[in-house]
Design a protein around this nucleic acid. Structure first.
Ligand SMILES: NC(=O)c1ccc[n+]([C@@H]2O[C@H](COP(=O)([O-])OP(=O)(O)OC[C@H]3O[C@@H](n4cnc5c(N)ncnc54)[C@H](O)[C@@H]3O)[C@@H](O)[C@H]2O)c1
Ligand SMILES: NC(=O)c1ccc[n+]([C@@H]2O[C@H](COP(=O)([O-])OP(=O)(O)OC[C@H]3O[C@@H](n4cnc5c(N)ncnc54)[C@H](O)[C@@H]3O)[C@@H](O)[C@H]2O)c1
Lengths: 232, 232
DNA sequence: TCCATTTTGTTCCCACGTTCACAAACTCCT
DNA sequence: AGGAGTTTGTGAACGTGGGAACAAAATGGA
């Protein structure tokens, strides 16, 4: 018999749904902040910018948290989604590469409020090490292992130049990090069991440019495309 | 007869393919930089981090630019992809909201080298206006219309707080911007014909957290998921 | 109690995307 | 010239995701 935790009903949540859950969470938080205690799937779908049928199907993968004829309790659903995503507790995160982008990330308050805590800023540049950024002292990259072990870090952010990205990723993986968010415009290869997601500004702009060019050529675009993160 | 440009063979490139073309472009540039003049679909697929069959199918939507038994000419294919995406000339871009993130974006050199040119930095904060960021003087948000008309800007970047995002988007659309890259964690609604892509760091981290939680619970993940931008 | 109304959860079907597998097309060697 | 070897381009099978539509379940009023 394999070890099973609590009410594990062999639930498999489609990747596309997983990518939307954070959007629903954000929309629910906004609704709660404006004092709304109950909402229909239509209301929430509008706030999240999706089709209501899709929203209901997405939520149905988590369980039956609504009431027919009534709708969803905002706080309750919010908690259920947060629990499903795993952001009811904070995740420790390290950021490697404290240049232009690393500084912005370090100063970003949205981290903390959404379930993440920056436990360390790392850089290879000796001139940067020791300086304080957003109230956190930058430490040498070689401290990575010590920090990861001390705080039990599972998630690492790469904000170094593209050439260093694979090296940094290799070091992260070797030390036990199993989730990487990569901002460098480079493909990083990792072993099975490690997740990598990339954020690439230039790619996003190029996708927009492609559609822009088509518009200029008089082509009729079928629908407006919104950016989103999928999986490969 | 409808107006058709040059060799327009009613080509419709799937959205998923469009999202990967910039990755191929980057990989080809890297190959060219290391002096490689010809490559097989296998080589390029490895460099781009995708399956070779998928790569070949993607390229086949553009045309037949390879030679059977030989492979692809790196420079030639690179130009064809750049042309298809529309980055053989530079696209003028405006950035609105020059805070932490806006500063980083303004200082990002990768823009220029990938077909984009920042023509203006805009902010609503009078204290910021007039100051120079990355060699460009920050201008008041109200100058948006003038700038867009002068430079024929089609692409706008939103890096303001979430609360301001919809307002900024509305102004952009009213003035004629038809592609928006939104960094604010907010759903922005736009009319048909306008494309919006979003980049949301917190969502990416939350997706990683979800999978991380599953790993911790002993669930067997089917495969490592890499981040990518799809369309809605 | 019963019926009208509301809204969820789910089923069914279609479109899109991915991968396999192979014929077609090219090179190179004998 | 011909055959062996290589690699592209694509047809077909499969899987995932999206959306319409509807039965099931709740509320509230008569
Ligand atoms: N600045 C942006 O707005 C932006 C936007 C999109 C993507 N990016 C990408 O993000 C990455 C960072 O961009 P940036 O503008 O902050 O660059 P940057 O050059 O300002 O900063 C890079 C930092 O990484 C450090 N570094 C280099 N090698 C390292 C290593 N091996 N280990 C640890 N640290 C190392 C450097 O010391 C430097 O502080 C780049 O890959 C860039 O292409 C940046
Ligand atoms: N800093 C990050 O690393 C980071 C990461 C992910 C997402 N974001 C998001 O990006 C956005 C910007 O983040 P930030 O850290 O740079 O915030 P910030 O507060 O440092 O900067 C926001 C800037 O926008 C300007 N602004 C506000 N309202 C405006 C308006 N109506 N018109 C024009 N300008 C206006 C402000 O004056 C300020 O300069 C936020 O929505 C944030 O959630 C930031």
């Amino acid at each position: 018999m394999t070890t099973r935790s609590s009410t594990d009903a062999a639930r498999v949540i489609p990747e596309a749904t997983v990518a939307r859950l954070p959007v629903y969470l954000r929309a629910l938080t906004a609704l709660a902040d404006s004092g709304i205690r109950t909402c229909s799937s239509e209301d929430l779908a509008t706030a999240a910018g999706v089709n209501s049928a899709k929203l209901r199907k997405d939520l149905s993968y988590l369980g039956s948290y609504g009431t027919r004829g009534v709708g969803y309790d905002v706080d309750y659903l919010r908690y259920q989604i947060a629990r499903e995503i795993g952001v009811t507790q904070d995740w420790p995160v390290v950021i490697v590469g404290i240049g232009n982008l690393g500084h912005a990330l370090a100063n970003y308050s949205g981290f903390r409020s959404r379930g993440f805590r920056i436990v360390a800023l790392l850089d290879a540049d000796p001139d940067l090490v020791g300086r304080s950024v957003a109230g956190v002292v930058v430490r040498p990259f070689d401290d990575l292992e010590e920090i990861v072990r001390e705080h039990d870090v599972a998630i690492g952010v790469i904000a170094t130049p593209a050439l260093a990205a694979q090296d940094v990723a290799d070091r992260m993986v070797a030390i036990g990090i199993t989730s990487i968010l990569n901002f460098a415009p480079a493909v990083v290869a990792v072993p099975d069991g490690v997740d990598v997601r990339k954020v690439d500004l230039s790619i996003e702009l190029q996708i927009l440019a492609y559609h822009e060019q088509r518009k200029a050529n008089g082509a009729v675009e079928p629908a407006a495309g919104a950016g989103e993160g999928g999986a490969a």
